[in-house]
Every structure is written in C-alpha cells, then in structure tokens.
Design a protein around this nucleic acid. Structure first.
Lengths: 333, 333
DNA sequence: AGGCAGTTCTACAACGTTGTAGGCAACGTT
DNA sequence: AACGTTGCCTACAACGTTGTAGAACTGCCT
C-alpha cells in the first residue's frame, strides 16, 4: 500500500530520477511529462520517504527541544513558540523532558539522538561546563538561559540579575521593607536561581534594606506546591515579610495560595511578585505582578541561532544573545 | 569528526558487519574481538546513525503527538505523560500543534510526516469522519477523545457525557437551581463540547431543572480569556446563575476571575465547576472543583494501543478504550 | 551543413546501516 | 579419517532517495 519513487516511475513511464525531479520542483521537465508524473503520484497517493531523503541529504528536518518539564507552564509556552518558530524554517520539533536531572541532561547533551536531529535547543537546569565539553562532536546546540561558566555553546537569555533587581526595586518602591525571596537553591546548580537571588540582593542594597537570611526560602523545584510549602515555612518561622519575590510564577501562585490559607491578604498584607509571565498569572485572584520575558523573541532568536549553526556558522567564540523583558505590574504587588 | 561503522571497522581490523554486530549485541563475537571493537568505538566516540538504521529497518523509533495547543495546560500535562509512556517503549515524541484548525488537522492526518514516524497519537478538535478516510495508508494512529462518528481509528477517551452529568448532578445536589454552562460550540465540530453539553442537559433533566438557553454560553476556544468573556456575557445578559459548569478548567479559571471582578463570591454567590483537573485548579483561590480524567492512564493506554498497531495488530473494528476519571471536589463547588 | 547551447531525460553511485548467505576453523562424533 | 555441528567472521545486497555525469534531442547561429 506504500509506494516508492520506483512505482511512480513505472506507472508514468519515466525514470526514477525524473519523478524525483518533479517532486522537488526541478525546472527542466517538460510540462507534459510533469503532468503525467503528477497524476501518477496522485493515483498512487505517493509521499516521499523522509528517512531516505534524510540519509541522502544529511539533514533530517528535525530539531530537538530539551526542557525540564512540559507541565511547568513557562516551558509549555516556550515550547509552543519554539515549535512555531521552527515551522518557519521547515523544521519539526522533537521534545525531550529531562526532569531537570543532571544525569538525564547529560544524556541529552551526549547526543543520544545523534543523526536523528539537525540541532538541539536546550534549557538546562543543572548542566555544568564539564558536561558541555562532552558535546564537542554532537549536533549544533543553542542553550536557553544564562551562560554556563566557560561553556562553549551559544546562549539566548534575558538579563536575570537586572530583571530581578528591577522587580525588587519596584516592590521596595511601594514602601515594603521586609521583602522575602522564594526559590533559592543550595546546590551549585540552578543558574537562574543564583542570578535572581543576586538581583534581589543588589536591589535590597540599593534600597538601603538589610539582607536577612531568614527571609530567603529555598525551593528544591519550582512548582506551585513548592511555593506554597516555602511560604508556609516562612510564615511558620516567625519571619513577617510584607512582600515576597518569587523566582518564578508557579512559586508565586503557590505562595499566594498559602497566604490565602493563612488569612493574609494580597497585596494589602503581603505583596507578591513572580517571574515568567505565564498565562495563569493574568487571571489569578489577584492577578500576578511579574517579570515578563519575551518568550516569542527567545524562541525566535534560539531558532535563528541554531539555523546559523546548522548552516555552517563556526564563530570563534560562544555567542550570548539577550532577549528583552518588561515588568508586568498587576494587582499582587 | 563524525565516524561511521567503516571507520571503526578499519581501526579494529574487522569487517563492518562485525562492528554492527558488536553494537547490536549479537552473541557470536569472540570476547577478544568484541573488546577490540569496543575500544575502537570509544576512541572514535562512534555513535550510530539513526537515520540510516531507520531506513534499513523501516522503523524510526519516533512517534508524533498532535495536540491543538501546548499552552493549554491540559495538553501540556498530557504531553508530559505521553512522552514518559513513549520512553518506556523506547520511543521519542515529535510534537505537532494543530491550533485546532480544521485545515492543519487535515494536514497532520494526511501524513505529512510520513515515514518519519512510526505512529501518531492525535487529539483532534475539528476532525470529521471524512478526513479520517484519507488516512487509509498513513501511519498507525490512535485518537484521543471520543469517537468521531464512523471513523475507523482506535480511540482512548473518558465517558464525557457521564462525567459531565455526574458533575452537574453534584452541583444540583448542593441546592443550586440556575446552573449555567460555559464552553458550548455552535459548529458541528467540537465533539467534547457536544458531549459535555449533552451530559449537562441530562443532569438538569434528572434533577428536574429546566433547560434554559439563556444560561448556555458559547466559547469559540477554551482559554481563560474565553471563560472570562463568556462569564461577563452571562452576567451582562441579566441571567443570574447560582452555579456555572465550565467545559474545561481554563474556562473555569477565567470565569472565576470575571466573577471576582463583578464582586461575586465563589462559591457563596456562584459555584464553579471545571473539567480536566489541571494543576492550576489545585492552587487557585478558591481551589477548583473539577472532573479529573486520569491523564497518565490515557497516555499509557494510547501508547499501548499504538504499540500494538505498530506491531502489526489489524483488528477488524476500531477499538474504543475507556479511561477512568473521578470528581475532584474542592472549594469552588 | 556544422557546431554550439540549452533542454530533457536516464543510468549509476552513494548516504550508513543491517539481513542473508556463505566461508573457514575448531570441535566432537561416527 | 570423514563428517556434521557450531562459532566466528566476511562479502554482498538492499532500504528509498538525490547528486553527478552524460546521452539524446531540439533549436539557433554562422
């Protein structure tokens, strides 16, 4: 039931290559021949074997996107943009979930899918420079998020330190004095956490506020449940924050829930700010003030960088491209 | 920099096929030879070309998942489960977004990715039986959602009518008398909408409540914004519902937001129930009462059915497999 | 008429892998 | 000593496509 070029060729009475030429829109084919071939194609419902084409051309038309978890809305939204941007280049997207585990991230970078994908867009959580070294002869790769120290790969990111600092400065500007942070991570891993914490501290300092370790709550992962747990821990510890800066929106939504359960009003008693601008935050009660990275831009830039790499670009140095962001001020802070 | 079997063979002083045998764990290879080949593989950092292997074997190890939109949380969560279930079978997952457009869905079914994927799991919105007919010689396919009338494909679904009916019956059981519905769709498309509406009507009838068209609000798509808009429309029309059954959770979250803006309390003034059990609903204020399909089970069943099809199963009739669900009663209703 | 350029088409090889068929030793059995 | 069996390995072909080289034909110019 599945036909090949050869079947079409026999039916149309031409060579295999002529059919291939018709399929690929080669110009020098007599209209009459072309018509005969096209009707043979239609009759047999022929569709080219993309695997064979890939083998022959050395390109598969598939790129992989590796993210920690698809059901973190930020990554789901990002994935949507990447799939769309890739479509503009004629690529389809293969999705890998790393679960944020170091081991799984190493596997992805090691190029398990080698020769099946033309390139890789990778949003790592725990990747180290050493892991990246193993990549030398893997497929072209673009990393999302700020640069892994010393790593050789191209990056697309927003300025996390500056963004966090601007947000916390905004919160301090509304008169809050005991601004907590949720989402810190003890491990050396977690680049985003480190940078956002850094921005938080810089903003406190600039505002003349003391840095209080008791106001910084760690979160192993960044789901709603972690945010709620961290908030409860903060409240239970006797720390009495009048604002919380959460390192992403799901943490913030979880924190707001915990505040609600504790009978505290947002923003009257405690202001809450997040990071990512996921859709939930635009409809939550109250709506969430957040740092809004331009996800469409991030996806587009990453795909464009990857396209250049696949096209043969071999710059000496790793490139780092900045995407834009803005503060989205809503009800919560 | 990229090596082939041939390079490894030369370095180890054996034939290409012997290297292939080592790579594939064929038993009859002398330990000494195997060791020599393995060290050659390690030295050259050889990794097999999956495209060539696919061509030779006729299997790619990739399945496609086609969903309307990844940033609808239900589909993001479902995708996560499908990727995990597929991994158990050694498959990776290619993601297609159809945008819910009829045209794009037709393209996917027509098998654009043919020969690049071993099978397809498809969650259609607007697909008709006629479209499915075109599929005859495409790759094996499993549909998510209830059966497209007369279609030949296997399905995995929960019983939407019964689930909707149970939820609305629950709401009526709490004493609500003017139960609105949000998410109806005028088009013949939208199978889920039709079935959930049907369950809604059945529950009203069983509860002895009148069916009032003025309480049924359509929604072109099922995002939060649509839910908010539909709720505002209901309130603006003078209908005074004391409960709303939304055909999915994002509609419900949007509706809750609109109720909040209108100064109405949930659930005291208006109860709200949703459908899908997305994570947001477990942390929203108030938490969302919802129908909770077992997404992990849906994904697992779909992948298993697909595995059977790929393995050569050719049942006479289309199979329809039911997944389980339960009511998740929380604060909102 | 001869030659040249352009058009249209074909035959062949190659992409990197694995299935098949078969060769050659080494071994145990008759 | 002859024979079959088993273990280990190799050579070749094939998966379906496209790039290359070139053959056959046409039309045009001198």
């Amino acid at each position: 039931m599945r036909h090949r070029l050869k079947d079409v060729a026999e039916r149309a009475g031409v060579s295999v290559k002529t059919v291939s030429n018709v399929v690929n829109g080669y110009v020098h084919v007599r209209p009459e021949t072309r018509a005969r071939v096209e009707s043979a194609i239609a009759e047999l419902n022929y569709r080219p074997n993309l695997t064979a084409r890939s083998l022959r051309k050395g390109r598969t038309g598939v790129i992989a996107l590796a993210v920690p978890e698809l059901d973190i809305p930020y990554f789901a939204e990002l994935t949507r943009h990447v799939v769309n941007a890739a479509a503009h280049h004629g690529w389809t997207v293969l999705v890998d979930q790393t679960g944020g585990s170091h081991e799984q991230e190493r596997v992805v970078v090691a190029g398990i899918r080698d020769h099946l994908i033309d390139g890789l867009i990778f949003s790592p959580l725990a990747l180290t420079a050493a892991d990246l070294a193993a990549l030398a002869d893997g497929p072209p790769m673009v990393l999302l998020g700020e640069r892994v120290h010393g790593g050789p790969a191209d990056h697309v990111a927003i300025d996390n330190v500056a963004a966090a600092r601007r947000m916390v400065t905004h919160v301090a500007g509304t008169g809050r004095r005991r601004i907590a942070a949720i989402g810190a991570q003890r491990t050396a891993q977690g680049v985003s956490a480190r940078l956002r914490l850094q921005g938080y501290r810089a903003a406190l300092e600039a505002a003349g506020l003391p840095y209080d370790e008791g106001l910084v709550a760690p979160a192993a992962s960044w789901h709603r449940a972690d945010g709620a747990a961290a908030m409860r821990a903060l409240l239970g510890s006797g720390a009495r924050p009048d604002a919380v800066f959460c390192f992403n929106d799901t943490l913030a939504l979880g924190a707001m829930r915990a505040l609600h359960e504790a009978g505290l009003r947002v923003p009257q008693d405690v202001a809450v700010a997040g990071f990512d601008d996921i859709e939930d935050g635009r409809f939550s009660v109250p709506t969430l003030t957040t740092v809004a990275p331009d996800k469409e831009e991030i996806a587009r830039l990453a795909v464009e960088l990857l396209a250049e790499l696949i096209g043969g670009h071999r710059g000496a140095a790793a490139r780092e491209v900045s995407a834009s962001y803005r503060l989205e001020l809503r009800e919560s802070a």
